[in-house]
Design a protein around this nucleic acid. Structure first.
Lengths: 244, 244
DNA sequence: ACAAAAGTGTTTTGTCTACACCCATGC
DNA sequence: GCATGGGTGTAGACAAAACACTTTTGT
């Protein structure tokens, strides 16, 4: 773990960002990594230890290398930071104001990722100075234009989560309908009607009951569902569109 | 006009793309410029005159300069090619496969623009070897990954036009409801019911009658409407969302 | 008169919403 | 038994779809 963190995404030497070997000048990658924990939407942030910006929070990122595509680069940075592979990862957009990094001209390509709580438990407790899950609502004051990137990613997530079944990437593989509802309520910042939400989801046929139920709960145990990607693809071919 | 075309977006010298002065290495801008003409969705393409790729069609584009933001750069390229300012212009995304330009590593940031037929009449007849409006459906075989970029832009447009009132940017300032319907039918490739489409649009209150009517038509003259940006903003603040 | 498109009305069907209600389980 | 969440039922409001119909205008 520590080894990975030493490979800091951006290295500051007395205020200037130094590119590594194999890196492309002027081009970086930044990742907005969303998580969902205890009913709150979280984002993974890193804190720089050295240089002019020491102590300030930022989105994780790093240089684009010559021998990798931009998508591969984002996946590499995500893997280096979290150890996770096969994560939902999608390009947000490029950010390229002239002065987004003072004194240098760096265009960054931002990605956002959705990770499962069960997968990132390794680092959820890792609340040192270096890397931390932060509440999205309470995260501001990030370095450079990272506040703007985060805001943009959140907008995109809010929109996308309503029109595509990507929210499941933030939940455990098996989840209850209430968990799913709470996820939507957290992301969209709305209150939903339980019976109606339930019916809407069931009617779409995208969720298949796992046959298992919750264990050790102080109320009637709920059915655990999983999202079926194959069914979704098949329905899409028939003109189905996901809507929440 | 010819002067502008001489400032070719990308200059090929015996197969290699040469950057100009002030350009940033490895970073280019490409524009997908949509138009709507005679009921068909069009895209503006350019043909290279010299070099290895002579005779092949491409999306217009060029280098990102050091002293301009990526948004400004896209607007500059659009202006240089068409002479138009204040055009609807939005970033699509970055494209950065390793081998998208053979032998070189160039990441491009793609934009798409929507232009009014009344504005581009200057060049609609300009069907020389250099620049041409082409039918979107019949456009393929473009250089590099430009087919993919076009496809991606069309996907984005199809999605966006249903959830945001941007289609009006492809129509004259004043238009009839049937023109609007035909635009949606062309973009989404569907057939819509006239009475229902009409009511849906009217009910949204976004269109204001101009008081004028069509002239010299061989049937009952239709009311000409215009889209009101201010009303749209006001409605959005009240939680309104545009849907077609 | 006729063609062509403008524009209105109506019926049917389905979906969204709100809210009342019963069920299962652990304490 | 009671709190908690799981899960079902239902009536009314609302919106979408299908299509018949009337109006206006140039030829």
């Amino acid at each position: 773990m520590n080894k990975k963190l030493e490979e800091a995404p951006l290295t500051f030497i007395s205020g200037e960002i130094r590119t590594g070997p194999g890196a492309i000048q002027n081009l970086s990658i930044d990742c907005v990594i969303f998580g969902f924990h205890q009913g709150r939407l979280k984002v993974l942030c890193v804190k720089y230890a050295m240089g002019e910006h020491a102590g300030r929070w930022a989105l994780p990122g790093g240089w684009l290398h010559k021998d990798e595509s931009i998508d591969d680069s984002a996946a590499r940075h995500l893997r280096d930071l979290t150890g996770l592979e096969d994560i939902y990862l999608e390009q947000l957009q490029a950010f390229g104001s002239i002065d987004r990094v003072p004194g240098q001209r760096i265009v960054t390509i931002a990605y956002y990722a959705l990770v499962r709580p069960e997968d990132y438990e390794l680092i959820i407790g890792y609340t040192t100075d270096d890397v931390q899950w932060r509440d999205v609502e309470e995260t501001s004051g990030l370095i450079f234009d990272h506040d703007q990137i985060l805001h943009c990613a959140l907008d995109s997530l809010r929109h996308k989560v309503r029109h595509e079944p990507i929210g499941f990437n933030l939940l455990p593989k098996k989840f209850t309908l209430l968990q799913l509802q709470e996820l939507y309520e957290a992301i969209l910042d709305v209150k939903l009607d339980k019976p109606n939400f339930r019916r809407k989801m069931i009617k779409m046929k995208l969720l298949v009951p796992s046959g298992e139920k919750q264990q050790h709960v102080a109320h009637r145990a709920a059915e655990l569902y999983r999202f079926d990607e194959e069914i979704y693809k098949r329905l899409c071919e028939q003109g189905f569109t996901f809507e929440v």
